[in-house]
Write a protein that binds this DNA or RNA. Structure first.
Lengths: 170, 170
DNA sequence: TTGCTATTTAGCAGGTCTTGCGAAGAAAGA
DNA sequence: TCTTTCTTCGCAAGACCTGCTAAATAGCAA
């Protein structure tokens, strides 16, 4: 994602207005490595600008995505996440804490795919699900209690209920 | 996913009851290659058994997933999809019609990942987004009108609004 | 077959995430 | 400063999914 000043110029050049809300969001997203959801970005933005609307955050994130300045990523945790990193990269998703990290994968463009059969591939998305180091350590300690895997449990332990996705923003 | 008769035995062995609703869903999902959502499976099921509840479809799909008989896939189109194919495979997602197809990828287990940095990978999911053959043909015909890419459009053209995911069930 | 009991179903309410809409407000050019 | 056009806010509503509970029923035992 471009720097706030460039985005400002781009927006104006496109006939779009540059409001304080947008400028704040430009700043908060620029080089943000936390893959925030609209909601979590909203809570940070609210701290800087009380009264800003969640609607505006969604709007601006969607606009930036349409302009190709933000990548929208869906790691299956319910809410969409936004990534200002436009490099060709993929993601590591912690199944325990929900944290998302960028990861660079060599040769993903030349994956050996059988029977493409006329399908024209545009983009390839790779998600590595697993455990981040902090969670692995925690898990190891309580490993005797872990994984009631067998049998059917009614309680939903799906990734949708991940607690407290970490935000690392200023 | 196992055959209906085996699932029936498994369910009973686990103390779960085998209802007509479940048997129908076993049959509809067994070797189903359409990657249905709960909703679309519900509409097919309703045809065979009017009055069946969407709640029951969700319940049964969730149960089968917990038992490892179904894989839950999220292609970012809003609703979760269910896949009875338990082979190690990935998915092709048509950005135009939303169709999902299984695809086998060689060597995805040994992707060259830089800086894993302590992260323990459990599963890898690969999504190839692009255009299926039918959609590519259609797109080509109307290619002069296609892709208003530049500028910001307020209208949402995201993958969430894909029309009419094809169902290929009996 | 009948009766019993734990499980399941149906249906609706409610939760989460996201978008549509319109009145009020504000950016930016004249 | 004025005017036009775009934006913001806030709420309503839509899509998807789960929690809850009364009523129904599978499956076992007699």
């Amino acid at each position: 994602m471009r720097a706030p000043a460039e985005l400002t110029a781009m927006f104006r050049a496109s006939g779009l207005k540059v409001t304080p809300q947008r400028q704040l969001l430009f700043r908060l997203m620029h080089e943000n490595k936390s893959h925030p959801t609209a909601e979590s970005l909203f809570s940070v933005a609210s701290h800087h600008m009380p009264g800003i609307s969640l609607r505006t955050v969604y709007q601006t994130l969607t606009d930036l995505s349409s302009m190709g300045e933000l990548r929208l990523i869906d790691v299956g945790s319910g809410a969409a996440r936004f990534d200002p990193n436009l490099d060709d990269h993929h993601h590591l998703v912690c199944q325990s804490c929900g944290d998302v990290r960028d990861i660079y994968v060599s040769g993903s463009g030349q994956l050996d795919v059988n029977e493409l059969d006329g399908f024209a591939v545009d983009t390839t998305t790779i998600l590595f699900h697993g455990l981040c180091t902090p969670c692995r350590v925690t898990q190891k300690v309580s490993s005797t209690v872990a994984k009631p895997l067998v049998g059917i449990s009614k309680s939903n332990t799906s990734s949708k209920n991940i607690t407290n996705p970490k935000e690392r923003m200023s």
